[in-house]
């Protein structure tokens, strides 16, 4: 199993220096992603999903500091690499697509040229003609019709869905082994969302590429991923295969999240919202950051030493809770 490990995030903690002092955004995040696997990170806005991905890729805002932990990609600790070495890995070994594809593309550069920029960055020896052909081929591979003409299009001339296809074409230009999709369907209409997700899924299968999907949509995660990690306020609370999670979520937060998710046969009135808000991370936090919102909170929940552990000896179902369901 371990030889298959592609990305391993171990006890990753990230803090941001703000004018209100240091904010501990991530608290000992643990994630494992195997080759060809699809993992979703699910959580509310501000739960640290994107920050985890940015920290792993080394594109964290300068205000953010990694205070603890390790990020291993095929056994190499990424946090020990120089920024130059990291740059060479980004885009070639792992790539990322973002939400709001319209603003995520350079507005005044032809989309074909933007694909070429990535090809040039990672294949310095490639000739101009070969690069252009590869860029057009790349546009065709994300099912953009008439790629030769679209090569000359600017992002503002394309629809949101088209822009996301271009983003995918850029991300996959160098055939990475890991694709991180950060809310790739936010800002797209529902029918386009499905098409884009199907495209990502299909391309990932075709290239044997692992996918890390960051989303707040539990339903989307269930449809496209084999495993789900639930995050809350910078902590991973539960990590399990989709079927296990939907059959028997053990963490009170996961259960709450599911009760708040729209499913067939459930009317809007039956949806239950999760009480309270994400805790204010500027204040010192108890060991379990969900404890203040949790109806199953015990006195020992506030004590330090909470860790992600296998639930009843099932190594594929991890949970960080002292009073699970």
């Amino acid at each position: 199993m371990h030889t298959n490990l592609l990305l391993s995030v171990q006890n990753l903690s990230v803090a941001f220096d703000t004018r209100h002092g240091r904010v501990a955004v991530l608290d000992k995040v643990n994630l494992n992603l195997h080759k060809g696997e699809t993992l979703a990170i699910v959580g509310e806005s501000g739960s640290g999903k994107s920050v985890t991905a940015y920290a792993a890729l080394g594109i964290l805002d300068p205000a953010g500091k990694i205070t603890n932990g390790k990020v291993e990609f095929e056994g190499r600790n990424l946090l020990e690499l120089s920024s130059q070495e990291m740059r060479k890995l980004r885009g070639r070994d792992f790539a990322m697509i973002f939400q709001n594809p319209r603003t995520a593309l350079n507005p005044i550069r032809k989309v074909g040229r933007q694909i070429e920029d990535v090809l040039q960055a990672h294949n310095p020896g490639m000739g101009a003609k070969a690069r252009k052909e590869a860029a057009i081929e790349q546009l065709a591979s994300v099912k953009i019709t008439d790629p030769t003409r679209r090569y000359n299009a600017y992002p503002y001339e394309l629809s949101g869905g088209m822009c996301q296809r271009v983003m995918i074409a850029i991300a996959l230009a160098c055939k990475p082994r890991l694709l991180i999709a950060d809310e790739p369907t936010t800002g797209l209409d529902v029918t386009t969302q499905v098409v884009i997700m199907d495209l990502v899924h299909e391309l990932a299968q075709a290239h044997g590429m692992a996918t890390l999907l960051i989303t707040h949509d539990l339903g989307l995660a269930a449809d496209y991923c084999s495993r789900i990690a639930v995050m809350h306020a910078g902590q991973v609370l539960e990590d399990a295969p989709v079927a296990t999670l939907f059959k028997g979520a053990r963490h009170p937060y996961t259960a709450r999240l599911m009760a708040a998710t729209l499913q067939p046969g459930i009317t809007l009135e039956k949806l239950v919202s999760i009480p309270g808000q994400l805790p204010d991370l500027r204040q010192p936090q108890p060991s379990c950051r969900f404890s203040t919102r949790c109806e199953r909170c015990l006195p020992q929940c506030k004590e330090p030493g909470l860790a992600l552990m296998p639930y009843s000896n099932n190594t594929s179902h991890l949970i960080a809770c002292r009073n699970p369901l």
Binding site: I59, A95, A104, L105, N106, D117, A121, H122, I170, A171
Partner: peptide, 20 residues
């Protein structure tokens, strides 16, 4: 956003700064 995506795509710093 597009500078962030350019960084994520591993473009060299000089290209990001001048071209983007």
């Amino acid at each position: 956003d597009f500078i962030r995506s350019a960084k994520a795509a591993g473009l060299p710093r000089r290209v990001i700064l001048v071209r983007y």
